[in-house]
Each structure stands twice: as structure tokens, then as C-alpha cells.
């Protein structure tokens, strides 16, 4: 088998070993540990207060802005990695392209900053 396929077989093996390991640990714990569930014990823990209602509901959307910015910068990163490997042969043209690219995204970051979207209330 070529080296390339072998590398990814290894990567896959690591994932499988991780899953097996977690399962083993939890099974071991399940075999050893006592299980005496009572109704009170299985209630949701809310700092000792009476639990009220479900937790699944609406949350303020300012969390969302960070996720959005993250996605945008994550996409930026997928362009930066290929460039970083080859930038010596791409030369000045590649550098200028990337600087323009980063510049345009920094404008967006600046906009978010001025719009007060970077504050977590």
C-alpha cells in the first residue's frame, strides 16, 4: 500500500481507538458503579433551586455574531494555508493578493467593531 493511504489508515485507527477507549471506560464504570436512581436524583440541577421549565428556548442573538465572524475568518484561513506553503514561489503578486484579501476582511472586522457587535453583554 502506498504511504499516503497508510497515513490515513493510521489517522482512522486513532479515531477508532479513541472511541473504543471511551466505550471501555464507560462500560467498566457501568459494571462497577452502583445504580440507585431516585426521582429526586434525576432532576435537573439548577444550583439547588427548584428546576423550572426546560432549558431549550430562546437565547439572545449576540452569541450569533461571534459564530458568524468565526465562520468568515475560518474561510479566510483556508486561503492562507495554501498561500503560506507556496508564498516564496508565488512572490510579490501572491503577497499583494493576500494583503488585499486580509484588508477587505479587516474592513468587515472594523465594521463589526464600530457597530458594537464585538461586545458581549
Amino acid at each position: 500500500m502506498p504511504d499516503y493511504s497508510l497515513s490515513y489508515v493510521y489517522v482512522f485507527a486513532f479515531f477508532v481507538v479513541g472511541a473504543i477507549f471511551v466505550t471501555l471506560l464507560l462500560t467498566l464504570s457501568r459494571l462497577v458503579a452502583p445504580r440507585k436512581a431516585t426521582k429526586e436524583k434525576l432532576r435537573t440541577y439548577e444550583s439547588g433551586e427548584e428546576p423550572t421549565g426546560q432549558a431549550w428556548g430562546r437565547y439572545p442573538t449576540h452569541f450569533y455574531v461571534f459564530a458568524l465572524l468565526f465562520v468568515v475568518f475560518d474561510v479566510e484561513v483556508i486561503f492562507l494555508f495554501p498561500w503560506a506553503v507556496l508564498f516564496r514561489s508565488l512572490g510579490v503578486a501572491g503577497l499583494v493578493e493576500v494583503i488585499v484579501f486580509i484588508g477587505i476582511l479587516v474592513v468587515g472586522l472594523y465594521y463589526a467593531w464600530k457597530k458594537d457587535a464585538l461586545n458581549w453583554y
Binding site: 450569533y64 455574531v65 458568524l68 465572524l69 468568515v72 474561510v75 479566510e76 486561503f79 495554501p82 498561500w83 506553503v85 507556496l86 514561489s89 508565488l90 503578486a93 501572491g94 493578493e97 488585499v100 484579501f101 477587505i104 476582511l105 474592513v107 468587515g108 465594521y111 463589526a112 457597530k115 457587535a117
Partner: peptide, 27 residues
């Protein structure tokens, strides 16, 4: 990398403009 930064340089810049538009719009 060679393709993106030589033949597709213009789409690459447009991509950043698209991202900027998405960012501004969503905010």
C-alpha cells in the same frame, strides 16, 4: 495554491468581497 493565486486571483478577491458582504449583512 498555484491555481488559486495565479489563474483564480480575481475570484479570490471577489470571495473576500462576498465574505465582507455576508458579514455586514448578517450583522
Amino acid at each position: 495554491a498555484t491555481s488559486v493565486f495565479t489563474d483564480f486571483a480575481f475570484p479570490f478577491e471577489i470571495a473576500s468581497v462576498l465574505l465582507l458582504a455576508a458579514m455586514v449583512g448578517a450583522i
